[in-house]
Design a binder for these strands. Structure first.
Lengths: 338, 338
DNA sequence: TTGTAAGCGTTATCAC
DNA sequence: GTGATAACGCTTACAA
């Protein structure tokens, strides 16, 4: 992997017949005599010169590089978030150093150190460490994980999302609800979905149950639970809220195999709002996270850190979207038609 | 976005009461007196020191950083490929600079320049430029796009994949095949899918048609074509090969809406082999690309560039996988059962 | 084996 | 407005 070494500012200066400082000024858009500027630009063109951002970074202590800590890109939520973050950073003149941690707290720590070595200007992290020890030496913004008041966090309005799901199910005629959750053991912002759901159920005087699992568990208990609540092809619940679309899909598949019809027998709402890449359709009725805005706010928070008085928690509004697993008016019609 | 500046080697040297060079040696694992090593390590620990890879890169002309040029992360193929590439690079001690080009040749050029400025040690690119002008100053490996003999390219065995699809359909009893393709106007490795499909059809004396569109077109002509070939709920073709799973999914949805049953009336095979993130199932019967191996080979090719005599095209074996849209024995049984 | 000093490609501070 | 020159933090001869 050899690199033929590229021309330096010195080469450009020699080629243009000017001093080093002049070249630097041209590059940094600092006023300089027009004839000089022209000569320098010609020389740059001729030699195919590019600034060495390492040398520059060394001098300026600014790298225009932000580390992105993601658990994985196999899940479309992370992939799309990373896509948006990178686009956003690029727009602001920053590049993304991508670090995949595979949900491993050790790897997260290592990546954070790598970021520090690399003198990134900041870190945007979606982590699974209970207590990522950030020494405060580098600006950090987290997503969906609140690390205490000193670190800003961006998330969708999970509480409201949970409320919306419950409200919607009740509005569509459900009277006996179920909340299903599987996720990391450590509690993140996403766990407010459950709290919001509960709050709404209480407020609406609606019966509900919750079944909660951790990532280390298998999902088997879910299916045992569901089986025990199916009697003669009828489920004891008429509305289910799953904490992710992904879980909702699996639950739907399970119910289909057991003769329970969705949405006729039971209506289901998920959370995430990730459209299928092929068809562009939501895999289920869902609470949609505003991923582009989340990316935007995270970047803004990171780059403006100096101007923001107190670290903030930014909680972005979600919306409900129909995805075929609930009985909206329009859906009812099309089902009746067929 | 302020960074309290971090300790330097000089600080460590002072703290440990040794010379600068000694600290450097400890860090680079160059033999040094045990007592010195200990003192230095203690000082590093105490100060929370990290090497500044910018300073190091400036000196060594090596950054341990590779640029990844991707069109997008919204498509799971790119997302998973990026995931694998990053993991692979990390394992070799390299970090990934992620650049998203949005399929825009201009952006691709700009990103390549950014990569050069950033003095990355190499670039792995999946591009849509007809002629990315790489000045050869930086090692480049492409994926799915062959830029001439001087640039190594990694791809799945698209030709063989096309053959396999045709062979499989014929083996499963199809006699009138259709190949559907939509993709970038410029021809890449992926277009060998069509050639392989044709070759196999000819060899097997099987009737086939092809319908080819470019990304700039809408897919409307596909559906017009299909409509014209549906007579009384029967399609004129009994086997379809789509150049991506994504297209296959849309075709399947269209056929379903028009009363053509898959796989009973027509069997369909796609290409990519991307399992659904929620259920882990293939969205259709498919030719599976070996994404992990593609990543691995691309990284190896890039890092070993010096030791590889001639730039090579690496063509990795694909495999067929059943995904519910073809009539395998086992599938036939389960359909008859129901 | 340890310490010293030059230099990597920039930027920034000065005299000019 | 222009051109030397000293840093930035590190590696690496080379001298001690």
């Amino acid at each position: 992997m050899k690199k033929t070494d590229s021309p330096t500012m010195k080469d450009v200066a020699r080629e243009a017949g000017v001093a080093l400082g002049t070249v630097s000024k041209v590059i940094n858009n600092i006023p300089v005599g027009e004839s000089y500027r022209q000569r320098v630009e010609d020389a740059i063109e001729k030699l195919g010169y590019h600034v060495n951002s390492y040398a520059r970074g060394l001098k300026t202590n600014k790298t225009n590089c932000v580390a992105l800590l993601m658990p994985s890109l196999r899940h479309p939520f992370f992939a799309i978030l990373t896509d948006e973050l990178t686009a956003c950073l690029m727009k602001h003149g920053y590049r993304s150093l991508l670090m995949i941690t595979n949900y491993d707290p050790e790897a997260e720590k290592k990546c954070l150190i790598l970021g520090q070595q690399n003198k990134v200007d900041g870190v945007i992290a979606l982590t699974y460490s209970p207590n990522l020890d950030v020494d405060g030496t580098i600006p950090l913004v987290t997503i969906d994980r609140h690390f205490g008041s000193s670190i800003p966090c961006v998330s969708s309005d999970n509480f409201r999302g949970g409320e919306m799901a419950a409200e919607k199910l009740v509005e569509l005629g459900c009277g006996k609800l179920l909340f299903m959750r599987i996720g990391p053991r450590i509690l993140g912002e996403a766990d407010k979905r459950s709290a919001g759901f509960e709050a709404a159920c209480r407020r609406l005087h609606t019966d509900y149950e919750q079944i909660i699992l951790n990532d280390e568990d298998t999902e088997a208990p879910f299916y045992t639970f569901l089986s025990e609540h199916i009697h003669g092809g009828k489920l004891d619940f008429d509305g289910i809220f799953c904490n992710t679309d992904s879980l909702a899909c699996r639950v739907i598949a399970f119910l289909a195999e057991h003769g329970v019809r969705v949405p006729q027998d039971v209506q289901i709402i998920g959370y995430d709002g990730l459209a299928d890449y092929a068809t562009g359709r939501y895999p289920c009725s869902t609470i949609v996270q505003p991923i582009p805005r989340m990316a935007e706010e995270a970047v803004k928070l990171l780059l403006d850190a100096d101007n923001i008085p107190n670290p903030v928690n930014i909680c972005l509004p979600v919306r409900y979207a129909w995805g075929g697993t609930t009985l909206e008016e329009s859906a009812v019609q099309s089902i009746q038609k067929s």
